[in-house]
Design a protein around this nucleic acid. Structure first.
Lengths: 213, 213, 213, 213
DNA sequence: GATGAATGAGTCTTCATTCAT
DNA sequence: GATGAATGAAGACTCATTCAT
């Protein structure tokens, strides 16, 4: 029980300290990966950022890959969780979309480094997806696809809609906007602009560019 | 005249052979980069794939970076060109969008490896964009943004539309679908399905998911 | 106090070991450089000579250049120091020369490899002098020139003497004798012969070949 | 007889052209070696400097080493020749020295690049001396040593003089002055200064610094 | 003779990972 | 737990040299 990884609860000061160090490494890694990319990041950089000796990293993680996997699992996990939560709420489809869009933008605003990694390393990296479970990533798509399918079945969306393709469009649109934030090509500073972006994005997803064909 | 370095036309067998080798390297690199990613690709792999000694690669390119840059410049160039061409045609906005969507899908179908690189390495890579001209990438966005702005000014699109954000949405949606192809999560084989995808994508971009809010 | 980084004194076993390894590398490099020349020496040779893995060399030095620079800085430094010390002693000019000549010969006898490097790589290498501070080398000449100038001003040497040129002559003469030792064309084994050489060299510098013109 | 390498004489236009190219390569190599050092010089650099394709170099020389060896043999040969000539002239020792000193300075002034190579690459390079005939270099020393021995035997110089060591002193002194020229630390421009240097150098060699001991 | 495309051995350098202290 | 010295596999890049044209 001394090595329990469950919730918080009562721990010895030792394991508390240990958990903190682990968290410090994860935070540091998030920052360094966001700055330099996974390949460009050196374990020594991460350790330095965390203020520890680099050898210590290997007490907490098997290797560099494992760090990224942990960030992915522990952070993306919450993400997936939220998607499911939204899916279970008694909401109309547009309302669900609004929540998602807000969630994505808020997630970026709270931890841009994390989003940067998700976008640059995880959601794209072929090698990452190959070595780890591509399915885990796909769950995010699946969750959205399920929402769409559900809405379609309930008559909220057109019969002709391809739920899978639509989930890619939603995800892609949202991700590219976040990429614009990450890259700095979409410069946003004040909360109002972010709010405005959310409106625009939501509107575009729900109603498109609005051109009469 | 035998050593003419003009466009195509009559060349010495020497320079023709040379140009072919260069092209072979570029093709090989496209394949290897698509398979292993830029970082995972070894120059030796590229040379082997091209059927040449790896030292020869350095006769044609300064270094590994330079190969990617060449692929980028020479292939992405055509891409930009097409965007501009579409922008100059006397078309309605939906018609323009249809062309673009078709072009993207077709480009992927003709050379999936190239698209894979563009998606995985170029359009996302922080380091690449930093070392090379991010502006060149941005031109693609700008071209689409200009189309939207133009259509908006002509009354085809709503006043409330943010052309820049909309260009990100379009680009992101299209790119994610292509990513699905690249990753193999969106399995498409027959032409009909691709055609159907184009319709769906176009419809989603123009009219959204179609949910009554 | 265990991690004191002061001069010598009490150190942790860790840093003592570290300093020793660094010194081992420097010694090994001196030997290898002397044997094969800077360009001909491989980092792997140095590591092997030092009895360590070659990767470890890069823990202590940035690159091969840096090793030579360290040898240069740390060894030549003592050299310059001695020149200055001699310059400050209350001695007649011939006495000063005697000290210098003795110092050069002794330095060679104690560490012929070091002298070999100084002669073959440092004092001659255009590239080394360009990348590093040629001024540092020149200080040695300047110190001798100052001694000559000083002696001339005090009336010990002729007004007609060009101190700068004379410093080159002294340095060159001494260096070539050492080169003879290094190359093995001037074979010396017993201390008496070295002592005799010192006398001869000193005499030649002070009185020349002694031919009546 | 068509590949005779003897004096000039009647040659076919072809072999004349060939000889010219060879000479061009030698000149170019001298310049490049002087600028970059033997190791730093690339065969391609030499070819470019000579205005030919680099493959052609291998029609005239077996390899890069061979080029340096040719420069050495053909240029240094004249040098040795001159030393012998001086040795055979009916001159007093000081007069011989005057000739030598003048010859060295003049040689430098006429072709500084050549002298740079002789100083930087040939006269010092351990590896060069090992692979080629160190004896050939030594001949220069021997010739001077012979002059000294001869003068000593004729009573012009003191019995106590060690002819071998003295030859090193003479050579070293002269060489260091030339090195000063080469390195640019001894800046000389007008002929008068060079003439003055010759006087100083000669005087220093014959009478030393002139300090009363 | 002339060219420069092609070859590949040789090295430096990086950095993830291990392990003695 | 913590440290950082030590290891060595891996890979980019250079450039002398060969050779088909």
């Amino acid at each position: 029980m001394s090595s329990a990884t469950g919730e918080a609860g009562r721990r010895s000061p030792r394991s508390r300290r240990s958990a903190e160090t682990r968290e410090r490494i994860l935070h540091a890694a998030t920052e360094v990966f966001a700055r330099s990319g996974f390949h460009g990041a050196r374990v020594a950089d991460i350790a330095e950022q965390a203020g520890i000796a680099y050898g210590l990293v290997y007490h907490y993680f098997r290797n560099k890959d494992d760090i990224l996997a942990a960030i992915f699992a522990e952070r993306w996990g919450q993400y997936i969780q939220y998607l499911h939560d939204v899916g279970r709420m008694p909401l109309t489809f547009p309302e669900r979309m609004r929540r998602l869009v807000h969630f994505w933008v808020e997630t970026y605003r709270r931890d841009p480094d994390l989003m940067t990694i998700m976008i640059n390393e995880v959601s794209r990296s072929y090698e990452f997806l190959e070595s780890h479970d591509i399915g885990t990533v796909m769950i995010a798509f699946d969750a959205i696809e399920a929402m769409i399918r559900d809405a379609r079945d309930r008559g909220e969306l057109s019969r002709d809609l391809d739920p899978q393709l639509a989930s890619y469009v939603i995800f892609g649109a949202a991700e590219m906007v976040l990429t614009g934030y990450v890259m700095g090509t979409l410069r946003r500073t004040d909360p109002e602009t972010f709010a405005h972006d959310e409106e625009q994005l939501l509107s575009l997803l729900l109603h498109g560019l609005g051109a009469a064909e």
